[in-house]
Structures are given as C-alpha cells and as structure tokens.
Design a protein around this nucleic acid. Sequence first.
DNA 1: ACGTTAATTAACATAATAGATAAATAATGG
DNA 2: CCATTATTTATCTATTATGTTAATTAACGT
Lengths: 104, 104
Amino acid sequence: MPQLPTTFAALGNATRLAIVERLLAEGELSAGELQADHITAPAMSRHFKVLREAGIVVQRVDAQRRLYAVKPEAVQEISDWVLNFREFWAGSLDRLDAALKGAK
Amino acid sequence: MPQLPTTFAALGNATRLAIVERLLAEGELSAGELQADHITAPAMSRHFKVLREAGIVVQRVDAQRRLYAVKPEAVQEISDWVLNFREFWAGSLDRLDAALKGAK
DNA sequence: ACGTTAATTAACATAATAGATAAATAATGG
DNA sequence: CCATTATTTATCTATTATGTTAATTAACGT
C-alpha cells in the first residue's frame, strides 16, 4: 500500500476533494459539469489528471466530453486504513473509544 | 469541515504518514524515537510541526524531550468522511458495494 | 558551571504545486 | 467545410514544500 500517501495527497487539496465529493454524491459527471468557478478550465483539467494518476477517478470518453467517476477502491483503501487502526485499538485496549470519549 | 483537506494533505507525505502509523500502533513516542534515517532531525521536526498544525498530533513536553501522540479526532474525522459516503451509497442503491464487487 | 543530549528555529537551495493565458485537439451541428 | 463546443496540452510564473547545514534553546548529569 505505498498508494496511500498518494491518495491522501490527491485529496489534500480543497478543489480536488470537492470534485471527489461531488462524484461520490452525484455519480459520473463531465469536466464541464464539475467546473469550479474560482479557477480556469485548464487548472481544473490538471486536477482531474492528478486524481486520475492517483487512481482515485477514471475517465470515460463520450464524444467531445470527458466523464469522470470515482473508483470505489480508492475510498475502500482509506476505509481499510482507518478500520485497521480502529480494530487494532479495539482489540488491544479500547484505547480509541476511550480516547474519543475523552475528546468529546 | 474545511479541516479535511488539511488533514489529507498532512497525511499525503510518506514520512508523515509513517509517523502517524507508528504513533497509532505504539502510542506516544518522542521525536528521537520517531526519527527516520532517510532525513535529518530538523526535517523531521518540521514534519511534526505540519502534523501539529493540522491537528493530527499533540505534543507533550517531558524535560528535554517532546512526546507526540495522535489526536483520535483526526482519525475520527477521516472515518466519518468515509462512512458518510458509504452510508449514502448504502441508503440510496448499494452502489458502493455493487461497485466494489465489480471491481474485485 | 560545563559538556552532553534532545529538539527546534534560522537561513538557504531546489523541487514540486497550482494558477494563468494561449494554442492545440477533436467531435458536433449546420 | 467551418464555426462552435469541450477539454486538454504547452508555457510561464508565483507560491509552497521539503531538505540541508548551522545556530539556538533548554534540560541533564557530574
């Protein structure tokens, strides 16, 4: 799993995280539909590229449009990482829940 | 939650992710114990600072040593984000599980 | 007090990010 | 064909990140 830091890095940008969240919530969307208004289309396009290269989204071509969708494995990868430590903690001393209660 | 991108960004570096993983697995550790051998102590110190500023770890002073520990809220924040979409998907059409099966 | 240990901050170099504008690619609809 | 639409690639610039060495801060043991 040397992929994880790359996955986190790709999501470590507000614009890209917003893209992923919209794709998760709305499903497949085109570059145009995902266009944010605070940056230009080329900037957006590079964000798509980062997400693609990190394996977080896939691109599908439909005529002149590029449709993007989240690869569920990426979400799964993060989920596994979190659950891994949750389980470890639960199994060893319930440190996480204890700590979380303290933090609340 | 404009915190999330910052959290992801902080974990989007292999050295920092390794620090967090060790802290999760072994509990509180000092800067010296966490020292990686591929970079210098000052470089390490800056990674601690990034993690602190992102709210992922807390620092405790013990004489001349700095002890670090993960703030469980940070892990919780990521966990919540993932589960949020898992729940959404489960509730709307089991798209995630379906997609995951297809991906396997 | 003094040298040692632990860690950080300062100053600097270089690489990687992110954004902009302009140009290119490619499919569509007249 | 040709103009339009959709999106990416090229180029350039500014900012941020990451690493180094040197200096600083602070506590320890003798």
